[in-house]
Amino acid sequence: MGLFSGLLGNYSEVSVQELHAQYGAYLMPEEKIQLGFKLVRDAFIFTDDRLMLIDHQGVTGKKTRVASIHLNAIYEVTMETGGTGFDDSEITIHYITSPYYKTNNVQTAQYKFEFGKKFNVQPIYVTLLSIAHENNKRLNA
Rank of each mutant, 00 (worst) to 15 (best):
F119M: 12
L71H: 02
L39E: 07
Y11G: 05
F86D: 05
Q34S: 13
I69D: 02
R138V: 01
A73I: 00
M79Q: 05
F86T: 09
Y101G: 05
F46L: 15
M52P: 02
E114P: 08
Y75I: 13
N72F: 08
D55E: 11
K137F: 11
G83D: 07
K112I: 14
I33L: 04
L139T: 09
K62S: 10
I45W: 00
M28Y: 13
T81K: 03
Q122R: 05
Q107H: 13
I33H: 02
L53D: 02
K118Q: 12
E31M: 09
L35W: 00
V77Y: 03
A109P: 06
T108S: 07
V77P: 07
G6N: 12
S5L: 10
T127L: 02
L51W: 03
I124Q: 00
T92A: 05
Y75P: 15
L3G: 07
M79I: 06
E134I: 09
I69M: 04
I131H: 00
H56W: 10
G9H: 06
H20A: 12
E13P: 14
D42C: 01
H56C: 08
S15C: 10
G85H: 04
V106Y: 03
I45R: 00
A73P: 04
Q57F: 12
L128T: 04
R138D: 05
G83I: 03
Q57C: 09
F115A: 10
L27W: 08
V66A: 05
Y101H: 11
E31C: 11
H56N: 12
Y125I: 15
D55G: 03
K62R: 11
I124K: 00
L8Q: 04
G85E: 03
A73G: 08
K137P: 13
N72A: 04
L53V: 14
A21D: 14
A141R: 10
L39P: 03
L7V: 09
M1S: 10
K38G: 09
F46E: 01
Y11E: 01
A73N: 12
L53F: 10
I45M: 01
V121Y: 00
H70C: 12
D49F: 13
D88N: 07
A43K: 02
P99C: 06
A21E: 15
L39A: 03
Y23G: 01
I131A: 02
Q57H: 11
I131W: 00
D88W: 04
V126H: 00
V16P: 14
F4P: 03
K112C: 15
K32H: 11
V106M: 02
E134A: 12
T97Q: 04
K38A: 08
T127M: 03
Q57G: 03
D42I: 02
N104T: 14
R65H: 08
Q22W: 05
